[in-house]
Each structure stands twice: as structure tokens, then as C-alpha cells.
Design a protein around this nucleic acid. Structure first.
Lengths: 250, 250
DNA sequence: CAAAGACATTGCGCTGGATCAATTTGCCAC
DNA sequence: GTGGCAAATTGATCCAGCGCAATGTCTTTG
């Protein structure tokens, strides 16, 4: 199953790889926010040489929990969800990734989670074996990976607090505030229009709730004047501060 | 408040520091399982020079979430709990630590969580500023820290799955299996006697449940013949495999 | 060894969120 | 447009785990 996924990657990669783009990295839009920001021109070129830019369609599984971590990925556009499953199919989404985020922190050389695209996505893919040789020459890269792992750990602990001790309202409020920060408008632009690329089911599986509770809580927030729902994937936070307080349990 | 805690550390450290133990590290019992295992004799000596072995009584708070991370700690004996609080006092324990575990992975140089001893504990304490200089000379140390962060991340994601999607029975089963593995007898010794140094309240706050549900589930497991309760902090797993299956949702 | 306090267990009623079941809405393909 | 499907919303009921209160057990201390 995951083999299939890997094969898909390979095929999908060919068109771009053969297109002969000499150095896709140097004009990469997510360069400044990804792990590449820790590299100088020379390092970037080294990484560029082992990189394949791969596009995936929406809803494509491309990493499977427990499989050998042969590839590492850097998301350059789109949204990805990471999830783990219980034997009977219960699903827990452990994170949503977007441009600049990294996939591939492994234990015992095996992926910790499965990954599936939410929207169409492009990733930079490295073979782990080759990546390791680049790592040796550029210790700043490893420092950067460590930093990313620490941030991921901090996010995981926020999530643990949320799942262990917050109510449904507090969870949804936390989620909206998080998504708002993520897509942050430059300054404190008073317009908190948030885009939610993922389905209600994904939100539910991320927050440890059911689809119905997510939906009901959204309408509750709407009736409370906290948000405005714009179509299916748009939300405007009418009272960001109130939501932030709710999120902290105040 | 946390300042007080830091001051307590300092005072508590004095007796040992002044005792003139020349090199406590070389005969340290947790040396082989802690981050020290990544150091040679010379590195160990360097670390030893900046180390203070500090004993804490049970129920001592010694790290506070959000405070500047001035010290790093290495647990050498006893059990520590790490936790985060919500504004109204709701508490979520994010992990239990024992000998060999490390405290101090920080983001923006601030602790991610508070730490309190469960039992009497001894830690090795380093000033972060000094630790950094040792880190520069011994890159293996940083690799080891990275490895520990990755393991912590894997544990955090197990916890996320547990809190988001497991029932009370499954959570308690997971907890018992985890504690059994942790205090693992050498071989597959059929005697699964597990010691639980923490209170029911700590277990509840770790598993996202209430004290009552923890207690009720223990008695349920006893009635189901899955465990035997020996006093207040002893449990024998009568059916470790059955519990492991329950933990996975089978 | 008795008294007191802290912690654990048990009983019982309640409720937040789950579950089951219709609608309703939005999105394409034609 | 319109027919058809997937996703979201809404309604009605249920129940796992919570909250409170009473009781029981262990530990500490004088």
C-alpha cells in the first residue's frame, strides 16, 4: 500500500525532473521559511542536486506510518495532514502542514505517522540516504532540523493539553485562533478572514471530536456573534480576542 | 513563584556541591542511559565540571512553564511529572520522567512545561549557558539531544492518539502497559509487577480522565481478572497481552 | 496505639458530546 | 440549468465519563 504511494511519487516526479529546471531551489518561494533558510548558496545548490519537486493531487496518501523512512519531504505549497490510526479505524490527525513545513522526522528510521494531502500540494523530496551526506557538510542544517523538532514538540504539547482538558467550544476556539495566526495577515489587520482547506471530518479528527459537534459548535459561535461563516471553507473571526480567551479557558 | 523554586535549587545544591565529590559522573548509575552515554571520558569530565547533583524532596516544583530556561536537568533517580495548566487550574500532565530522562528542551529559551517531583529525586543540573559551550566541543551530545527530542515527539504523538481517540479502558490499559515496559524486568520474566509511584490524581491528569474514572477502571480490570491491585501503588498485570490488545483498541 | 489527615474507592444522578437519522447545501458533470 | 453525489447541518436520543457526596483505607505523628 505504501509502496504504491512511493511509486506514485516517482512517476509524478518525472515530468518536473526531466523538465530540466536547473536550480528550482534558488527561486523557491518557501525558501525563506523552510529548512533551506539555514543554507548558503553553496549548500542550497548541494541540496538542490538531490531534490525532486513533486506535485500531488488532493487526497493523496504519500507517507505511511511505520514504513521505512526512505524519503524526506519539504512542503512548498498546499496543505497536508498527518495522522495515526487505531486498529478499528479510529483516526487522530496529529497536525496540518503548509508551505515550509518538514515531513520525515523518524524514529528507528520509520515514519511516525501517515501523511495525506488535503489540497493539491507540491513537495521537495529527498532520499534520506543522500540527505544525510548533505547534513554532514552543513551542520547548520541539522541545527535547523533540531529547532523544527522542538517547535513540533511544543505544538504537540499544546495539542495534548487541548485534547486532555479542553471542552468542545475551547477546542474549536483554539483551532480557529491557530488557523488565524498561521495565515496571519502582515500587520494587525483587523480583518480576520480565515481559510479552512480541510473538511469538517478532518477538523473533528484533529480536535478529538465528531463531525456533528464541530458543525454544531460553529453554528453556536455564529449565533454568539463570534464568527461569520463564509461558504464552506471560509470563516471570519468577528471577535478574535474573545475566541483567544475562550481558547485559554478564561 | 518559580524564582522561589530556582532559589530552592540553589540552596539544595550547596551541601552536595561543597561536599567535594571530585567526579560524581564517572560512577553515575544512570550514565549509560542518559545523554552522558554519548560522551567519552574527556567529555564526561567537561560536563562533570559544570554539573551540580541536586536532591529534591517529593512534591517539589523545580521548573515553571514559561520561565526563562536557565537550567537544564538530567534525572538520575526518582520520578518527575511534567505538566501544563489552563487558566482555571485544569491540569494536563504531559509526561512522567525517570532516571536517564532529560528536562530542558526549550523554545525561545523558555520552558515548555512545569516540572514537579513525584518521589524524592536527584537530578544533575547544568547552567544552560555553560552547557552550550560543552555542546560546541562535543557534537555527539547535540546528536543525542536531537535523538531524545525525536523520542519525546514520538511519545507525544502516542499521547495525542490516546487522548483524542481512546476510551477510558483503553487509556488505562495503555498506561499500565507503558509502565510495565518502562520498569521492564530483564527477560520476558512472566512476573509483571508494576510500581506506580504517582497518585490516582496524577494518573487522571495524565490520561485526561478524573480520579474516579481511573479508580473505577482499575477495579473493573481487577474484576475482569486483568490485574491484581497490591496496596496503593502496586499492580500486577495478570494478562499483559490482553491489556496490550485493549490498549491498541482490539 | 489512637487520632487525624490525605488519598482511594464506591454509589448515584447528571450532562457534554456521541450516535443515529433526516434534511439541506454545495459542487460538478453533463 | 439539472440531476446526482458528497459533505454539512440539524434534530432527537443515548451513554461514557463527570461531579458530588459518603465511605473506606493507608500513613503520619504525637
Amino acid at each position: 500500500m505504501s509502496q504504491t504511494a512511493v511509486h506514485q511519487c516517482t512517476h509524478a516526479a518525472l515530468p518536473l525532473a526531466l523538465a530540466g529546471v536547473s536550480d528550482p531551489c534558488s527561486h523557491c518561494e518557501s525558501r525563506s521559511i523552510s529548512l533551506c533558510s539555514s543554507l548558503d548558496e553553496q549548500g542550497l545548490a548541494a541540496l538542490s542536486r538531490i531534490t525532486a519537486a513533486v506535485p500531488y493531487a488532493a487526497k493523496t496518501d504519500f507517507v505511511s506510518e511505520g514504513e521505512p523512512a526512505t524519503y524526506l519531504f519539504n512542503v512548498t505549497s498546499g496543505t497536508v495532514k498527518l495522522y495515526r490510526l487505531l486498529a478499528d479505524g479510529r483516526r487522530q490527525i496529529v497536525g496540518f502542514l503548509s508551505a515550509g513545513d518538514f515531513i520525515g522526522i523518524a524514529v528507528n528510521d520509520r515514519y511516525l505517522y501517515s501523511a495525506e494531502t488535503v489540497t493539491p500540494v507540491t513537495v521537495c523530496r529527498f532520499a534520506k540516504s543522500k540527505f544525510k551526506t548533505v547534513l554532514e557538510d552543513y551542520p547548520a542544517l541539522e541545527k535547523r532540523l533540531f529547532l523544527m523538532a522542538k517547535n513540533e514538540l511544543a505544538a504537540a504539547q499544546d495539542q495534548i493539553l487541548l485534547l486532555g482538558r479542553k471542552t468542545a467550544r475551547e477546542r474549536i476556539a483554539s483551532f480557529l485562533v491557530m488557523m488565524d495566526k498561521r495565515g496571519a495577515q502582515p500587520k494587525g489587520a483587523a480583518l480576520h478572514a480565515v481559510h479552512l482547506p480541510m473538511s469538517r471530518s478532518d477538523i473533528a479528527d484533529y480536535l478529538g471530536l465528531t463531525i456533528e459537534t464541530v458543525s454544531r459548535t460553529f453554528t453556536q459561535f455564529r449565533n454568539d456573534g463570534l464568527i461569520r461563516l463564509e461558504g464552506i471553507s471560509g470563516v471570519t473571526l468577528l471577535d478574535p480576542d474573545g475566541l483567544a480567551e475562550l481558547a485559554e479557558g478564561l
